[in-house]
Amino acid sequence: MPKCEAAANPVRAIPSTALLGLALAMAAVPALAADRVATQSVEIEVTEIVGGLEHPWSVEALPDGAYLVTERPGRLRVVRDGTASAPVDGLPKLFVGGQGGLLDIALSPDFATSRKLYFTASVPGEGGQGTALFAARLSNDEKRLEAVERLFAMNRFTGTGQHFGSRIAIGADGTLFFGIGDRGEMDRAQDPQDHAGSILHLNPDGTPAAGNPFAGGSKGQPEIFSTGHRNPQGIVIDPAEGTLFTVEHGARGGDEINMPKAGSNYGWPMISYGKHYSGADIGIGSSAEGYEQPVHYWDPSIAPGAIDVYRGAMFPEWNGDFLVAALKYELLARIERDESGAITGEERLLEGAYGRLRDVKVAPDGAILLVTDEVDGQLLRISRAAAP
């Protein structure tokens, strides 16, 4: 956000009548109400930036302090000065149903000059619907998307309405990582010729990135980075270390944080720390040769919606910790990590206070942004509470 600059003009006396008018005007505008909440290490304030959103799915902070928010039913809005804009025009045709619709949004690293952004969505096509990745430009007046281009679509569309993924993480080299779930057909996650159940790695133009394990496509789809993922709805690159992490839905138990590496298989549905919804065992156990173990898992499930790594000035106590938005228990999980990256504990924040938490992002000023996946959804901001 821009810093304040000192005025160059000389100071002038303000008439008392003007001061009275200013005081009355300020009194007539209520300050945004904030909830003060105690945590293990610091008191926080939770402020609603805007409400009235329909199933918001993703938020991005714009360079000037405004926000972009996606709504799953197929709307993109700009939130500025506490007000959500009319829907931005120019979105492509989407499939809206079940867990599908308009999903994640991410700003290109050069957005401040190019106004380029990326977004994921479920789209209709031959055989049903599937996950696609798009690039576009936000117009200067913020009213429409321009130069919309579909960069990628998964190779097998089906009629199921779940497990589309799919958040976006942008590497230091500008390449794009995003996940696609198994689309409710678990065996697809073990088929390297199927994009379902995998993490994808693409160049900004949608072509397969260098270093993917199936270059050439003879043994697997060339866009695939890793396989064996059930439904990775969160993905982040730690800005301090450059490490890729995902958070994924398990079945009945077995939600996971993974650290995907090129060519690795993360086991679904061969191994899991959960069970099927019927109560039946999954696969061959919780570990087996050839399958990677999660960095962390939950049993019972918390239904994770997104993940970020806290790197910011506002909460130095939380430096390096994972922040995971959760739907089922309506909470923000702070997963503590030591200097080596090892997980040392978990603190559950805001449980049941605001509804289903779908996205979490660390803002440029170190505050934490959340969106609530509700019919009357909110964009929330967590900041450090001032001393009493």
Rank of each mutant, 00 (worst) to 15 (best):
V309S: 01
I307T: 03
Q293E: 06
P304D: 04
D299C: 02
E292S: 04
V324P: 02
I307L: 14
Y310V: 08
L323W: 09
E317Y: 11
H296C: 02
G312F: 07
A313H: 13
D308K: 09
H296A: 04
A325H: 05
S301C: 01
W318E: 00
A313N: 15
P294L: 08
P300K: 04
V309A: 08
W298F: 10
W298A: 04
A325W: 07
G320Y: 13
A326M: 03
G312H: 12
K328Q: 02
H296W: 04
P294F: 11
L331N: 12
I307H: 03
Y310N: 11
R311H: 14
K328G: 00
A303Y: 08
P316G: 08
V295F: 10
A313G: 14
P300W: 09
N319A: 15
Y297G: 09
R334P: 10
Y297R: 09
A303N: 11
L332E: 00
V295S: 08
G290S: 08
E330D: 07
L327R: 00
P300E: 08
P294Y: 09
P294V: 11
A325Q: 09
L331C: 06
L332I: 05
E317G: 12
V309C: 06
W298D: 01
S301Y: 01
G320Q: 13
G305T: 08
L323T: 10
R311V: 15
L332N: 01
S301H: 03
